[in-house]
């Protein structure tokens, strides 16, 4: 017993900290790469629809979002269904084709993610899709959440 005590008393109690900056830098670089800084201010209300057969979009940098839902108003009121791209509500549906065409020129692999409120009518989505066809951004994605099976 005494033999063991003697041995442990000899070892140093310090944890080596010289490699810590390297570890921290590695974590830092990981988070810097995964971070997408831009966040939009949602002006429409969106409850996601749910589906089972969904796919993941790994390349977040290719995605451009279009939000469709009832406009948020004061209090908890909601107004008529509107379309929002980036930070602005779209007044004229026909303007979407130019907007999206500009984005398409910048990023030809663009994926348009349609975030539509599940209570909305499909007519507005159809209009937007027609505009997307004109703009040439043909890859779309209906944003849905994974359905939870009971």
């Amino acid at each position: 017993m005494a033999h063991f005590e003697k041995k442990s008393a000899k070892t140093s109690q310090d944890v080596p900290t010289s490699a810590m900056p390297d570890v921290v830098f590695m974590l830092l670089i990981f988070f810097m790469v995964t971070t997408v800084l831009r966040e939009v201010n949602l002006q429409v209300q969106i409850n996601f629809a749910q589906a089972e057969n969904i796919e993941k979009i790994e390349q977040k940098r290719l995605i451009s979002y279009i939000y469709i839902g009832p406009e948020k108003q004061q209090g908890n009121q909601t107004g008529p269904t509107r379309v929002q791209i980036d930070d602005a509500l779209i007044e004229d549906i026909g303007a979407i084709r130019n907007l999206m065409y500009d984005k398409y020129k910048e990023q030809p692999k663009l994926i348009v993610s349609l975030r539509v409120n599940d209570e909305s009518e499909f007519g507005v989505v159809t209009d937007v899709q027609e505009e997307l066809r004109e703009a040439g951004t043909l890859r779309i994605n209906y944003s849905t959440k994974q359905e939870v099976n009971n």
Binding site: F31, T34, I57, S113, Q129, N141, Y142, S143
Partner: peptide
């Protein structure tokens, strides 16, 4: 500032205009 949420959805290819 990082949000690690993966975008999921149903992908579709629209027909050209």
């Amino acid at each position: 500032v990082t949000t690690i949420d993966v975008d999921t959805g149903i992908g579709l290819q629209l027909p050209p205009a």
